[in-house]
Structure formats: structure tokens, C-alpha cells
């Protein structure tokens, strides 16, 4: 494929793994720096966008960008080991080469979110593409209203970005609520599904935007609940995914009705995809 500048967007840029840190059980935070040389640099990107990572010889898969351009040049991806490509990426050592393609997809409308209260609901590895939203709000705290983060996982060992919770809580007008389906001995937060936590926190829909990412079943039930709490479809955002192959609107893998997750999304409001959500289950 080629863009106006002649670059082929199916052709990965070469990068190096600069850090690979265990974040949870089978979950690593990978830090990637692009190699200097003839390749163009990775363009500026915005919260919500994704990129493909190549474990060469194994394959390529899309991951939400978990970092922000503002916080530095290292691209960060939270990768849970689930299949062959994620295993290949987990097995890379710091310094190893990998491929990067992106940034792709649309973005959260951060400007439209300004001066609104934000309710961020992340389930499991689905929290990864929401971290750039949280970082952007924390880095421009005065531009946004109350930030309420509802963060869930099946088990404490599957919670991501645990080392950042303190700094999230310490920010002004920011709350963090945690829940797990199944606790361990050290757990002293809520136990139950994300929907239980939403009911307990009972967020107000007034001047608020909700942003959800997690497994499809969680997205579906959380969305229903938010609707009951008075959030209009235009106030309910999701970021969706599929095992896509191009990210460019060609391979056909990610359609949801007439929308393509890669090109029309991955960020959608429920006004766009509400009717399809049941078929996404």
C-alpha cells in the first residue's frame, strides 16, 4: 500500500525493545524505540490509536498504544500473552528488533471532553488503550472536570499499571475504584464484577462522558447499566478491537455491520455502534 508520501503502510518500521517489564500474570509492558536510519519516524499519535507489532517470523497483531506522545518517544504497549504473536513478543529480550506499524485508527475526542467529567472504565488488558486518556487528563488537569476511574480485573494478578495507582489517586479531583472478580489474601478493595462497582459508585451522568474498554461481555453490560444511569448514547464511548490484519480498511477482518473498527474506530460512541453491540457479544 502507499500513502501520498509513497510510504507503504503495510511495511513495518524497525524498532527495538528498550524495556520489557512484568506488570501482571503473563502481562508485560513493552517499551519500543524506533531505529534511526532511513525509516521515517513514528508520527505523533493521540489517545485511542493503535499500532501493529511484529514478532518477525511469528506474525503481527494490533495493540492499543498505551503511551502518549507528550510523555516521551518510547512507545508503550501492554501485552498479555494469549496467542503466538503475544508469546513471541513476550519472549523478545531488551535490545531485540521488532516491527511497528502505525499509528492507526481514530482518537478519543479529547478536545470535546474538555471541561467535562470523565468516567473511565477499564476491564483487564482493556485498560491499556485507556491509559493515554488518563495520562492526558492528568497532564492537563485544569482542562477537565472530575476524573473517576473504575478499574477491574478477574484477579489482582491481572490488574495493569498497579504502580501508577498512587499517582492517579494523588491527582486533584481524581478517584480510583478497584474491583476484582476473585480476590487474594492481600486484596482490600471491592470484590465483584465491574457492573457491581458501577452500581456502587453510581456516577452521575451530568456533564459526564463515559469511556469503556474491556472484554465484550463487560462492555455490553456496563453500557446497559450506564444507559440506565442516564448516560445518553452520545455520552458513552467505547474502544473496540478485532484480530485485524491491515488496520487500513482493506483486509475486511474487523467489520461491525457497515463500520470498520480499524478505520471508523476503534473509538466509537454508542450513537454509532449501540445497535450492533448485541451482535458483538
Amino acid at each position: 500500500m502507499s500513502t501520498a508520501d509513497g510510504a507503504d503502510p503495510m511495511y513495518p518500521l524497525l524498532g527495538r525493545l528498550v524495556s520489557s517489564r512484568d506488570m501482571g500474570r503473563e502481562i508485560k509492558l513493552l517499551g519500543v524505540k524506533l531505529l534511526n536510519g532511513t525509516q521515517p519516524p513514528f508520527p505523533a499519535y493521540a489517545p485511542g490509536q493503535f499500532a501493529f507489532l511484529s514478532a518477525f517470523g511469528i506474525g503481527e497483531a494490533p495493540f492499543g498504544l498505551a503511551s502518549t506522545t507528550e510523555r516521551g518517544e518510547v512507545l508503550e504497549f501492554a501485552v498479555q500473552r494469549l496467542g503466538s504473536v503475544t508469546t513471541g513478543l513476550h519472549e523478545l529480550a531488551e535490545g531485540d528488533a521488532l516491527g511497528v506499524r502505525g499509528p492507526l485508527g481514530n482518537t478519543f475526542p479529547m478536545e470535546a471532553f474538555q471541561h467535562k467529567n470523565l468516567l473511565v472504565l477499564g476491564g483487564g488488558i482493556g485498560g491499556a488503550p485507556l491509559r493515554p486518556v488518563i495520562h492526558s487528563v492528568l497532564d492537563h488537569r485544569q482542562d477537565y472536570g472530575q476524573l473517576t476511574i473504575l478499574w477491574a480485573a478477574r484477579h489482582p494478578s491481572l490488574l495493569i499499571f498497579r504502580d501508577e495507582y498512587e499517582s492517579w489517586r494523588a491527582a486533584p479531583h481524581t478517584e480510583l475504584h478497584l474491583t476484582v472478580d476473585e480476590a487474594d489474601a492481600a486484596w482490600d478493595h471491592h470484590v465483584g464484577l465491574m457492573t457491581d462497582l458501577v452500581r456502587q459508585v453510581a456516577p452521575s451522568a451530568a456533564n459526564t462522558v463515559a469511556i469503556t474498554c474491556g472484554p465484550p461481555i463487560m462492555i455490553y453490560h456496563v453500557d446497559k447499566l450506564l444507559s440506565e444511569l442516564g448516560f445518553a448514547p452520545e455520552q458513552r464511548y467505547v474502544t473496540l478491537e478485532a484480530r485485524m490484519h491491515c488496520g487500513l480498511g482493506k483486509c475486511g477482518r474487523c467489520n461491525m455491520g457497515e463500520l470498520l473498527v480499524c478505520r471508523d474506530g476503534p473509538v466509537f460512541s454508542m450513537a454509532q455502534v449501540g445497535n450492533f453491540l448485541e451482535s458483538y457479544l
Binding site: L82, I125, P215, P216, A242, S279
Partner: peptide
């Protein structure tokens, strides 16, 4: 398996 999502969920 065409429309699988990352966690193995199949919407179709």
C-alpha cells in the same frame, strides 16, 4: 474464527 477478538471471544 474469522471475527475473533483478542481474548478469544467470537462475536459471530
Amino acid at each position: 474464527g474469522y471475527r475473533l477478538t483478542a481474548g478469544g471471544h467470537n462475536p459471530r
